[in-house]
Write a protein that binds this DNA or RNA. Sequence first.
RNA 1: UGGGGAGUCGUCCAGUGGCAGGACGGCAGGCUCUGGACCUGCUUACAGGGGUUCGAAUCCUCUCUCCCCAGCCA
Length: 564
Amino acid sequence: MTTPDSARSDFIRDIITGDVKTGKYGGKVYTRFPPEPNGYLHIGHAKSICLNFGIAKDFKGLCNLRFDDTNPTKEEVEYVESIKKDVRWLGFDWEDRLFYASDYFEQMCRYAVQIIKMGKAYVCDLSADEIREYRGTLTEPGKDSPYRNRSVEENLDLFERMRAGEFPDGSRTLRAKIDMKSGNINMRDPVIYRIMHMPHHRTGDKWCIYPMYDFAHCISDSIEGITHSICTLEFEDHRPLYDWFLDELEVDCHPKQIEFARLNLSHTVLSKRKLIKLVEDGNVTGWDDPRMPTIAGLRRRGYTPEAVRNFCERIGVSKRDNLVDISLLEYCIREDLNKRAPRVMVVLHSLRVVIVNYPEEKTEELEAINNPEDATMGTRKIPFSRVLYIEQEDFQEAPPKQFFRLVPGREVRLRYAYFIKCVDVIKDTNTGRIIELHCTYDPETRGGNAPDGRKVKATLHWVSASHAVDAEVRLYDYLFLKADPTDIEEGKDFKSHINPNSLEILKSCRVEPGLKGATQGDCYQFERLGYFCVDKDSSDNKLVFNRTVTLRDTWAKIEKKGKG
RNA sequence: UGGGGAGUCGUCCAGUGGCAGGACGGCAGGCUCUGGACCUGCUUACAGGGGUUCGAAUCCUCUCUCCCCAGCCA
């Protein structure tokens, strides 16, 4: 309990280690992940989840899941369910510690009364606009509300009647009496309760006043016995207020708030507002669109919890503004899938190949390795016959020098099968388009090796035409063309950088027969192409795959360089 | 121009008085029945100026740049 379990270290763990050493909080460590149920979780939340649950684990403490549900106008049950699902999927367990800020409304109300009695809070009749005017600006101090000096009795009475529902929305607020001249605007008599005649997803019609974040959050933390309240940088100047409430209330548990920089990921956006906009405007099909950086989107895309957790570990934690390159995320999923994904052969853009010296009716079963990284995954049989499909881009009639795949007259290997040589290119007489290739095979090279030791430069993936199963494959690309889509020109919005080609649907791909019956979530490496998983739209009649990520593609780089 | 934060390779994170390091990316090789994986090497950074010190990314000081805050959102 004195040092973290793992070697992992960051400035937050350092602070906590210090607190544990000095015996602060009795040497205990207790954290919480406090989402507001007003949207789906995204990879930025994953960073926070890994941090909070990870710290609890490292220090042998606990971490609660708590919904910060203090604003009934934006929050929905759908979101709490999705959040629970996503946290669980990421691999974290809150056990019996599922809480809601709304569980504490009664206690918060008692605390509010206590602060009023101390003369440190008052009911204010100013309108929202007036409060804004009185607040001053960043450079000018605010001025006191005319209601600031109401008597404790009057405040108590008014607050009681606010709670009883006697006043309309927006007519009054309860405010902390702190300092209208503070350089920190959060301390200029912040609102702590507002009137909202609005049913709450958990408390129903019980309340018509709801506490504000600053009041609710510190109290919730305190009630739960949180020791370290970890949040993002924008709450840094809320910390004096967090501490003010807990000091005034003289609570037993006064957690330490520590702020870290939120994650920014290149080529995507991570703000709930913007993500909601993408969903609502139909730029994506929903919160779980595989292009979305949401946990639900990543899951559907084929990301594994291990890869996401690993990513969160690798990006580290600090207080600097950051823009993490999405290539790191891709590296993490490739690293994971390379070890676990069975290999399989699939042709995306098919080109017909006839092996002219192979018997018409013959079919043979060839043995293929399921995963060269893991011998325990065994082998499988794949059918070979006279007519095959290969990838269109694996053949060129007039190739550049570095192209070493199939060309007229050249011999290449069909993976796990035979060496073949292209002897004829059949074209459509009208369009000139290549329709099929005629090749010969060398029977001596069965399995993929030549007894005479001769080598070929390329190995192609293929599928036997008569045995192939049709499938739809969805190829995804970055949602935004620019690394930082929020970096925009005057007068434009983040949508101006959206990638119009972030989704490409391939309707008639040919997959090896063994893939028939693959079920939702199954992931594979399509050899030489990338990692793919079975989408939820897939059915027995129609296979649908999502491309999770391509393989590292050296050839694509060479090609690009040639063009660029 | 008030308050609060932050500046280290292209990117992210370490280093807190003693040779600036790791990861990703990039580049170049090796190996290979996936132009994959794996292996090797290389590239590149302490925002700037003063000062303290035998010695400074680290301490002091001045400056510059960037981010956050004026919701009855969180």
